Computed example of a mutant assay.
Amino acid sequence: MPIGLATLYPSPVIGHRGACALAPENTLASFRQAARDGAAMVEFDAKLTADNRAIVFHDDDLERTTDGTGPVQDITFEALSGLDAGGWFSPAFQGAQVPSLEEVLDCAQDHDLAINLELKPCPNRVEETARVVLATAALQWSADDRPPLISSFSRAALAVARDLAPSWPRALLCDNLPDDWREQAAILRVQALHLGDVELSPATIAQVKNHGLAVAVWTVNDPERVRFLLAAGADAVFSDDPGAIRKALG
């Protein structure tokens, strides 16, 4: 299924978890900050609570970005809503909540933000997470809307996305380019690879691009490195401060 680069990446700079250098990651404040700074696209992580609500949250545990403790998959959405997800970042954001997926999708649509929805399942909930997240997202999309880009490190989650939402583009996330990337790209029918910026070379980018796949690189906050990667053929980068990178690129 040919999908143009403009559909995958409306801008070469994607806000990583919103604008998480300036606001607490994966909160509505972070996505609104990205929109204010001119981002055209944001990335975020989706997983499930104990009662199968799709939420936007990165870690498997609560401690790093909330005042709660324990595994995310053991807490109900109601209990999660009572946690502070902003005070860890700055007192100015105290009281920010972990948002539901529906809230983030509404925010993205209100601010005309394209989205990269990463399936980030908790342990042992891979297929279930993919099914619930995709079903939740599908309720808010019409055929005329720009499709969300679905990505994941989990090949099993991407297989669910391939089967349940075949018209939505997909990207395989990798720390480094795996030996079986061509085989997996064909099996999962992905349109892109999202590669970590650890010793990523122009030769690796060219190898993937020559295979007909797009390349986006995470997470890049140095403008000179962004220029280098884009000149080397990368189609987009993920940045914690998309506004600053956009400004530096001119």
Rank of each mutant, 00 (worst) to 15 (best):
G38L: 01
K120L: 02
A143N: 08
C20T: 09
I75D: 11
L62W: 07
S154R: 06
E199P: 04
T7G: 10
P242D: 04
A171C: 05
H194L: 05
E63F: 07
W218R: 01
A156S: 11
T65L: 07
L101Y: 10
V190C: 04
G87N: 03
A23Y: 03
M41N: 09
F238I: 11
P10Y: 07
L195R: 00
N52L: 14
A40Q: 06
S81T: 13
A19P: 02
I14F: 08
D51Q: 11
L173G: 06
V220Y: 07
A46Q: 01
A161Y: 02
S100I: 14
L158H: 01
A165N: 06
D197M: 13
P166G: 06
A216C: 11
A161N: 03
F93W: 07
Q184G: 12
S30L: 00
L5M: 09
D240N: 10
D74G: 15
T66G: 06
D74V: 12
Q94E: 15
G212K: 01
A192L: 01
V104Y: 04
D84N: 12
Q94K: 08
V217Y: 09
I115E: 10
D59F: 00
P166Y: 00
L134P: 09
S90A: 08
L149V: 15
E103A: 14
L249C: 05
I187A: 13
R131F: 07
L113A: 09
R64G: 11
A171Q: 01
Q184A: 15
L188M: 08
D144F: 07
Q33N: 08
P148F: 00
E78H: 14
D51N: 11
P147F: 01
Q207S: 14
A137Y: 00
W88T: 10
T65K: 15
R125D: 12
V160W: 02
D180V: 15
G196D: 01
D240Q: 04
V226I: 03
T27I: 09
A186H: 13
A231D: 09
W168P: 06
R170A: 00
L101G: 13
Q191S: 13
L230P: 03
A216Y: 00
D45E: 03
D67I: 13
P91D: 10
A34N: 02
R246P: 05
E199T: 12
A46K: 05
A186G: 11
Q94L: 11
T7N: 08
S30P: 09
D37V: 02
G68I: 04
L149R: 08
R36G: 09
